[in-house]
Simulated assay, not measured.
Amino acid sequence: MAKDYLKEKVVKKKSASVVGWLLALLVLIFAIMIGRFALSGSINMFSGMPDSDDAYKIAKQFIIPTTLSKNVDFSDSEYKFAKKSDSVYVIKSFYTSKFDSGETSKTNFTITLKYNGGAGAKTSNWTLLNLDQDN
């Protein structure tokens, strides 16, 4: 009878140890998720690299402050996109500026951006490496 009691005690201790490790693992996973959310603003753990559309949207946000006109139309369907190594994106396209005087101006641009990680939709996660604009 004493042996049965000792065997039960060993089994209970072993199962309690397994439950303890599982709880520790769950706490670790939860802490990682909270940390990712705090750093990137997104809970998505498997977002991967931004695609061409994400990079083009960010490029527009970098270009708008450099224009002389408040009324700018980008050619969303006619841009060219290339991805280089080390998360560097190159985008070629154009935009049309409409001025108050009624004049319009077409400007071709080539922008080079570096993605630094995090949410691809946030401009703070990108670095402008180069911007060339030709009228």
Rank of each mutant, 00 (worst) to 15 (best):
N44M: 07
Y56T: 00
F46R: 09
D132V: 11
S77W: 12
S105V: 05
T66C: 06
S85P: 09
N130D: 15
K98A: 11
S15P: 02
L6M: 14
P65G: 05
L68C: 03
D132Y: 04
I64C: 00
F74H: 00
F74I: 02
L129Y: 04
E8D: 14
A31S: 15
A24Q: 15
I58V: 15
A31Y: 02
N125H: 10
V90D: 04
K60T: 04
V19Q: 14
V72S: 02
S40N: 11
A82W: 12
D134S: 08
G48F: 04
T110S: 07
V90A: 08
F30S: 14
N130G: 05
W126R: 01
P65V: 07
I34E: 13
D51A: 10
F30R: 09
L68F: 10
E8K: 09
S47G: 02
I58S: 08
T127A: 11
A2E: 12
K13R: 12
F94N: 14
D51I: 07
G41Y: 01
S101Q: 01
L25G: 04
V72Y: 02
T107H: 06
D132L: 11
F74S: 01
N130K: 15
P65K: 03
G20A: 07
K9V: 00
L22W: 06
K114C: 10
Y79C: 03
F94C: 07
T110V: 03
K92Y: 11
Y5P: 04
N71P: 02
A38L: 12
L22M: 02
D100Y: 09
K70I: 01
G118N: 08
F94V: 02
F94W: 09
S101T: 11
W21E: 11
K92C: 10
K60Q: 08
N130E: 07
V72H: 03
S87K: 05
S75W: 12
S77H: 10
M45S: 00
V19W: 00
A2M: 07
S69N: 02
I32Q: 06
K114W: 05
L129T: 04
G35N: 08
F30P: 00
Q133A: 14
K3V: 12
T67E: 06
I64E: 05
A82P: 05
A38I: 05
S77K: 13
K7T: 10
K98G: 11
I29C: 02
G120R: 05
A55V: 05
K98N: 13
Y95K: 05
N116K: 10
K12P: 01
D54I: 03
S69T: 00
T110K: 04
S101A: 07
A2V: 06
T107K: 06
K92V: 10
F37K: 11
F74G: 00
G117R: 03
K122L: 12
N125R: 05
K80V: 05
N135W: 10
S105R: 14
W126P: 09
S42E: 13
F74W: 01
Y95N: 07
A31C: 08
D100V: 13
V10M: 14
T104G: 13
K83L: 10
A121G: 13
S105I: 06
I91A: 03
D76A: 11
S42N: 14
D4I: 09
I63N: 00
A2S: 09
S42T: 15
E8L: 09
K12D: 09
Y115L: 07
N135P: 12
T112Y: 01
K84M: 12
K13E: 15
I63G: 02
F74L: 00
K3A: 12
M33W: 08
L23N: 13
K92Q: 14
